[in-house]
Structure formats: structure tokens, C-alpha cells
Amino acid sequence: MSLRSPLLLAALLLLPLSFLSQHTHAATIEHDAGTLTLDKTPTRIVTLAFSFVDALAVAGVSPVGIADDGDKNRIIKSVRDLIGDWQSVGSRYQPSLEAIAALKPDLIIADSGRHHSIYQDLSLIAPTLMLQSRGITYRENLAVMQKISSAVDKSAQFKMRLKKHQKRMLDLKNQLNNSDTYQFAIVTDKGMWLHSPSSYAGSVIKELGLNSPMTKNINEPYLQTSFEQLLKTNPDWLLVGQYTENTVLDKWQKSPLWKMLSMAKSKQLIHVSASVWSLTSGMLAAEQIAQELASHLKK
């Protein structure tokens, strides 16, 4: 409540200006399924992707429901610490419409990449924003975050936090200043996927002024990569997030060719958290990625 009282005051002060409208807040947001007009500030929000939780945490709003795949630890700690408890509404791939409706939300934020087919159903439950969550860059994500903050009437907070964020990123950028190449990849027992500069992690690396080992301009965010292509890409630093316990790296490391990689020679293979680097995106995730990079570089 303490957070809300200065807002209430601000709203009261602004009241004479909005004498034509009976509502304290009216937001119109352009989203991926059209235009959504909200005539009052939503308070019970359900989000169906992790990156939107980051956006709400930054705006200082706690969602009542999250499609967290039934595991609260899927939300990264820096985000979890900023929000209150929530109800799970199922998996991101197939959220439970019943669980969402039971929470009586007044705003649903869904992933336009994943939830396109249930948009109509979601709209029947509550006003629904369709925004992009996966396969977008750092800057595109900031634009999405800004839309969410204006939907929950927290544009001012967002702008303040954004300034702080930009300063943090700039500080880290200055610290990281070097000419090495950096590559983030996801590994499983089935293969390796390089995240190009058009992926989220790749674009954060780029934002920090670090070089990508990919010479060509690549629009695909995730590239499946054989050992041969890794040898050619040959990054100075390889940051890997594992999705499975055993990965193809175990096999590749045994090959005589492994020693020919720059990062193997200089021991610059770093294991990072897949949930921070790949599963989510947002200001808090970006700051964590940047800090992790800085901490490894200082060693």
C-alpha cells in the first residue's frame, strides 16, 4: 500500500485536469493483436511469459498469476525478489484457461508467438495484451517493457528505472571494453544452438560493446551448430547454458580438435545459467547477464 499512496495523491492532483473522464487512468496500447484500451488501472494481472514478469517487477507490480510451468524457480531470483507470491496458471506452452479465469484477472499479458491461437479465449476472460517474448532483441524487449509499464500505469517508474538501467549497462560496457569475441550457446544432448546477435542474449552482448564471432549478418536468432561450425566460429569466449545433464560438449571435449579452439586454449569456456541467459529476458535479466560477463572478465 505504501507504494500506492503517493500515486493516489498524484491521481487526486490530476483529477481536475481529467474532469471529462470519470476514470483515473485510461491507457491505449498498440499490441500484436490490435489496440487495447484500458479504462482503469489493472491490479490483477496474469502473465503467460517470463519476460513480462521482469517488466512488471521493474514497474513495481506483482502479478497474481504466472504461467511458470508449475515451478516457481523458473522465475529468476532477481525478479522473484521484487514481486509477491503468485498462483501458477500452468505451462507457458499450454496455460490453463480455467486457472486463469479463477484468478479473476483484469489484464492478461500473453506471448504473441505462443498464444496466438487462444487470444479469443483469453479476451473473453479479461482484456488481453499480445506482446512478443521470444526471439526478440534487447532493444525490442525494452519497447515491449515500456508498453507493459504504460498498461499498468507505471510509465514514470519505468522511465526512472530505465535511466538507472542504462547507466548500469554503460558502466559495465566501459568496464568490459576489449576486442575479444563472445558467444552464448545452449547445449543439450542433441546439439548446440548458438544465439546470434539477433537473439536476446546475443544482443545484450552487442549492447555491451562486445564483439560477436559471427562475421555475417544473421537474422536467425538461434542457429543449430555442428562441431565443425563451432571450430570455424571459434569464439574467444564461449558461454554455455545447459538444458540437459549430458551434452554434446562432453563428446566434443574428447576430440583432438577441441584443443584447436581459442577458448579451449585460454580456458575461456564459461558455464552460465540457462534460465537467466535464455529462458527469460528483460532489464533485470540483462543486468545479470552483464554482471556475470564482467565478473568473469575481471578474473
Binding site: 543439450t188 546439439g191 544452438w193 538461434y222 540437459t244 554434446v248 540457462a274
Partner: peptide
């Protein structure tokens, strides 16, 4: 595949048949 959303794309890739991991 629905349950394993994160690893789904690596499983899907395998399901299409690939020789990239052969040694």
C-alpha cells in the same frame, strides 16, 4: 513435447533426422 517446452526444439530437430552429431 508439450511437457518439455524448453528442450522441444532440440527434440524436434532430432525428429527431422540429422547427421550433424556423427563422429
Amino acid at each position: 513435447l508439450i511437457i518439455a517446452d524448453d528442450t522441444a526444439y532440440s527434440i524436434l530437430h532430432w525428429l527431422s533426422g540429422s547427421l550433424s552429431e556423427i563422429d
